[in-house]
Every structure is written in structure tokens, then in C-alpha cells.
Design a binder for these strands. Structure first.
Lengths: 357, 357
DNA sequence: TTGTAAGCGTTATCAC
DNA sequence: GTGATAACGCTTACAA
């Protein structure tokens, strides 16, 4: 077992100084052809690689991005990570992942753990508990320490930073509009409770689409699912709640659900009640994951382009990181660049499959 | 914007030496009650946190684990990450994620990128291309550098390290046995090409179960899916290939598929051909993901317990990391602990749902 | 009780 | 053309 070789060891071995080795390896032409050759050959032989940690300490930057998300076993979030990783890798960064598990405390702990020098910046999506508490001090504290943040999907106005969001509102408008165009008269909405902003926006989009078509929204046709019902163990509860909802509203001929699970469950329930899809009831979901693609019938959805979100977020963060770098070398009393934060809106796209006609 | 405060700054501010500050903060009783108080108060006020990078350099360990997997948008892998993260976090480690994207080259690049001091050890699952090439030098090189590796799921005998695997063979035996017990006479196998070891093992399990029941395996009933068909764009090809297979073998009354997708697609095709599930054809898959749970009818599967795999892998790695630590402080000419690598086998579990009766 | 100095692995500045 | 020195932030043996 040969530990990684260091400059010091090469220097000793070749009987030169450490700085000579360093320069030779970086191809500095201060060093003679001869020694450079010798040193490079030796380094290659022993497979020398500079130690990242030492470089990080010296350069005061780690070239790694911290990702902080509520949950990783989730198609949307893993797609975003894939996008981030792709860009990060291409631009010479690593990604370190922390999971908040939807918990406020875990979010803070993770954040502090990484903010102590481990990463150069964050890309994150806020946990539900944090959204509920509306306590965002940890984000602002981090930003104040000079660590930039890019938020995606679940973002919040109270924190000034770059953001990448999906156009939830218009996505919902488009989806409902499509159902209307396809002849639905009684469109139900299956959504979440309000504090998760994306659920709220999609609900607003639903209302907007109805209004645009001069249809009065019927509160009876809106089902808000309690958060606890998302958990796997409560699958039956979800089903029975939706079933109850369908029975109360036999006129339903269209369903817009704010996520895949609700949509697929709605289809399941509808068929159980003897309604055929898409002939009796047309269904469209939000988030284009595995479920939508492989359900029977396959589900029409509003696609969020998670990977693109990740890519955009990564580019924004790295751009800012590298801007800071050049800026602070130019002059220290840097211009107030705080004001111009960017908010990128990723357009949604409707993917038509078998659940609509 | 106040950058994070350092020991040096505290020292200057309070007019003491850096080492005094360091000691005071670590609660050393070398330092007087008085100064300790003063320093701790000041540190607290300015929210001092030691810089991770500096600690890593000093201690020659980073307290972070490198995860290297082929793909993250994948229920099984993300479940494993969740398990790793959970244990890592609890034991004071961070996780940094690299994706090989099933590519040999990317696997190597990522590995080298992280092995240069960024991580203390790896938890990984081998990319398909690497398995195909059977070139494992980078794993061995890493281990030789003193960086321990724990492999999971897609493992290989050629590399000596700790491993965590699913009992693919027995899982498959159990699944097929169940189909037999439920009265199936003509059980089809839908599997992958052979070089991915898990596919091979599950195929062997299928054969074993038949043999145990004195049934001769019919090669006609085995469908090997080309790898490229897994890609999303080729979904129709997958479907038509399976459809063709069903038409050739109308006697099929049971299907064992080595993954969720094949199983769900088989159900879809069977129903399209007018067969009812589970009455005419019973289906069981492998890997308990979202698809199985939410398909209609819901799919019986062999569950792999991804999270448990991740937890075991993380514990194995951290145990070894901390063993190395104490070992090398005890005496340098350490005992040859290379030989005793552990292979943990996680038992599978059959989850019965609607696709079997 | 406090401070000095060395070291973790690098690179940059300056001197020889 | 080469080397000594300092610095990144921290800990710790050793001096004072």
C-alpha cells in the first residue's frame, strides 16, 4: 500500500526543493528543460496528483457545490441532481449532497456542516417544515457569510438570491385549458395544502384557466390532500379519500392533479368506479416521472424538465462563484452586486399520453 | 458581508496567541478560567466554527464518503443513497456523489477526482461498461492507495473489498417458487443480457426454482432484453418485443421479470392481448419501486431493501475507516487485515400485491 | 497559564 | 535556474 506521493517526497527523492518541483510540474519556464523533464517523468511514474484539500485551503475555495434537498427518493429531485452534476462536472466542480428530509432542523444542521469551508455555494430546495415555519434566517446567514445560494422549485421571496423555478402557474393553466378544449365540463382539482408554494401556484393556475373560459369554479370540485397522506403507508387513505371525492361529484369528467401520484391514484379510483379513461374521465398530472410514463393508461402530464432546472441552477451558481472571484481580485471595495439576482423561469411542456383524448 | 471568523482573528482581537484560542475553545484546562470564558464568549458572539478544510488537511482525513453510482434517477440507487446519507450523517460524515452514467471513463475520472484527498473512502456500484470491459484496475489502484472501497449490488470478485449484495439468486428462486405454488405451469423469464451480474444471478435463480420442482426449463420461455431497449426512447420497442414474445408463447401463465419495468410492461402487453391479470397470467417483478406500488394492478415484487443496503455499506465503510485510524496509531507495522473482507448479503422479501393471486 | 513552532500539501513571492 | 519563506486555518508538542 503506497500512499499518495506528495511534492515534498518528490523533492527529497530528486534532491531538489519543493518549490522547484511545484514549478516544474506546472510547466513554469523558470525551471530548466532538464530538471523539468526529470521531475515530470518521476511524477508521472509515481502518478502524482496534487492534493485537493491542500489546494482548497490555499485557494480558499473548494470547487464543490452543496446540494440541499428535502428528499432524494423522488424522481423530480434526482433529475435535478443529475442536471447539476452534469454541469458541475463539466465545469470542474464536485457535488456534495445533504438531505433535509423535510425537516427544518436537519436543513440547518446540514447547511452549517457544509458551510464551514466544505463548499463554495449551495443549490437548494426548501423543506416543507421550513416553509411552514417561515423561518429563513439560516439562508440569509449563509449568504451574509459570502456563500452564494441558488434556490430551485421551492423558493421564497424573503431570501435574496438567484432562483430557478418552474412556471407552475402557467403549466396549470395550460393543463386545465387542454382539458377544457377536449370537452371537459366538470374539471376536478386534486391538490396539496397551501403552504407548499408549488401547490398553491398550480391551484391558482387551475382557477385562472376556468376564469378565462368564463366558468365559475366549484369549490366542491377541489380536493386538498393533507400532507400526511403522501406517505406510503397511507396509500389506502389517499385512495379512499379520492374515492369519496368521486362519489360526491359524479359529474366529474376531467381531473387535474398537482402531482403524479394523485393523478395515477385518481385514474385507479375512477376505473374502480366503472369510469373509463379517457372516455368518461380525462386525467392530467404534473411532474413527468416514471409513473406517468408507465401507468396504464399512460398519463398525460405537465413536464417540469428537472434536469434543465438543475443545469440552469448549476450554471447560475458557478457563474456567480467565478464572478466573485474576478471581482474581488479587481478591487476589494466591490460594487454592490447584491441587487441584481436572477430568477430563471423554466417553461413547462404538456406531454399528451393515453389519459386524455 | 462578514466572512467567517478564524482563530487568528479572534487571537488578534483578544490579544492572545492562536494556540491559546484553540485550546480555550476545545476546553483545555491548560488555559485559565478567565481567558477561556472570554474567548468562548467572543467566539460564540462571532459564531466561530472551525474550518473543515483546514481540519481535513491537518488530520489527513476529510470525514466525507464518496458515492459512485451509475445513475441517480433510479429508485433503487436513490434509496441506497438515502441509506448511506442517513448513517453518514449520524456518524459525522458527509457524502459526495459522483455519477458514472454507466461509462467506464466517467467512472475513472470521477474516482480520480475524488481520490485526490477529497474523500476518505468509496461506496460504489460498478458501471455496466466497466463490467463489460472487466477492467477493474482503478478500483485496485484506489485500494492500494489506502482508500477503502465498499461495493454494493453490482460487485465483482476481482476486487478485494467489503461488499453488500442482495441475495438475487434466492430472491429469484423464491419468486418463481411462489408462482409455481400458485399454480403457474408455464413461467416465462424476462431478463437482461448476461454481463450484469444481478441479471445473471436472477436468471440462475429462475432455473434453480424450476429444477427444484422437476420442471424442465424451456428456452423458448426466456426472453433476454438487449440493453439499449432500457432507454426511454425505446419504450415501444420493448413493448413490441415483449408482445412478440407473448404471441410466440401463448401458454404463458406466469411471468418473472428481473426488474420493475419489464414486469409492468409485460402486464401492459398481456392485457392488451386480452389476458387478465392475475387470472390468466400472474406477474412478479424484482426491485420494489414506485412503479410496482402504483401500477394497476399493483405488482408483486421481490423487494431489495435499498435503504438497508446503503446503511450497511456506510457502516462497513466507516467501521473500516475508524479501524484504520486506531490501528495505525497503535503500531505502524500493522497486522495484515487485508484478508478479512466482509460480504454482507441482504435478504430479499416478497411483497404480494394484486398481480399474483 | 500562555506562547512558539512545526506540520498537514500547495503555490506565490522574493532572494540568491 | 533554483531555493527559502510565507501563507491558507488548524492542532499540538514543547518552551517559557
Amino acid at each position: 500500500m503506497k500512499r499518495k506521493i506528495t511534492l515534498k517526497q518528490i523533492a527529497k527523492e530528486l534532491d531538489v526543493s519543493v518549490s522547484t518541483v511545484s514549478k516544474a510540474l506546472s510547466g513554469s519556464k523558470e525551471i530548466s528543460e532538464d530538471t523539468t523533464q526529470k521531475i515530470q517523468a518521476f511524477a508521472k511514474l509515481y502518478n502524482y496528483r496534487p492534493n485537493n484539500i491542500a489546494l482548497s485551503l490555499k485557494n480558499r475555495k473548494t470547487k464543490t457545490i452543496g446540494i440541499l434537498i428535502p428528499e432524494i427518493v423522488h424522481h423530480f429531485f434526482s433529475t435535478v441532481i443529475r442536471g447539476i452534476e452534469r454541469i458541475a462536472n463539466r465545469r470542474g466542480y464536485n457535488v456534495i449532497v445533504g438531505l433535509s428530509n423535510e425537516s427544518f432542523t436537519k436543513e440547518i444542521i446540514n447547511m452549517e456542516m457544509l458551510a464551514n469551508g466544505s463548499i463554495d455555494g449551495f443549490i437548494l430546495s426548501i423543506s416543507k417544515e421550513t416553509l411552514l415555519k417561515q423561518d429563513y434566517h439560516h439562508f440569509n446567514a449563509t449568504i451574509n457569510q459570502g456563500i452564494p445560494i441558488v434556490m430551485f422549485d421551492r423558493v421564497v421571496n424573503e431570501v435574496e438570491c438567484d432562483k430557478v423555478i418552474v412556471d407552475d402557474f402557467n403549466g396549470a393553466v395550460k393543463a386545465v385549458k387542454m382539458l377544457l378544449d377536449k370537452g371537459c365540463k366538470h374539471i376536478a382539482l386534486i391538490t396539496t395544502v397551501d403552504y407548499v408554494s408549488v401547490g398553491r401556484l398550480r391551484t391558482q393556475g387551475y382557477l385562472e384557466a376556468l376564469q378565462l373560459n368564463k366558468i365559475e369554479a366549484d369549490p366542491q370540485l377541489i380536493l386538498k390532500i393533507e400532507d400526511s397522506l403522501n406517505v406510503d403507508n397511507h396509500l389506502e387513505d389517499l385512495e379512499s379519500e379520492i374515492e369519496h371525492f368521486f362519489k360526491l361529484n359524479p359529474a366529474i369528467d376531467g381531473v387535474f392533479a398537482v402531482n403524479e401520484l394523485y393523478a395515477v391514484t385518481a385514474m385507479k379510483v375512477a376505473r374502480k368506479l366503472g369510469r373509463s379513461i379517457p372516455d368518461d374521465v380525462q386525467v392530467i398530472g404534473f411532474t413527468d416521472g416514471v409513473l406517468s410514463k408507465h401507468a396504464t393508461p399512460s398519463l398525460s402530464t405537465v413536464s417540469q424538465h428537472g434536469q434543465k432546472i438543475g443545469e440552469q441552477a448549476a450554471n447560475l451558481l458557478i457563474d456567480r462563484l467565478e464572478a466573485i472571484e474576478t471581482e474581488s481580485t479587481q478591487y476589494l471595495g466591490s460594487a454592490d452586486s447584491k441587487s441584481d439576482f436572477i430568477k430563471v423561469v423554466i417553461e413547462t411542456e404538456i406531454i399528451e399520453r393515453e389519459s386524455t383524448k
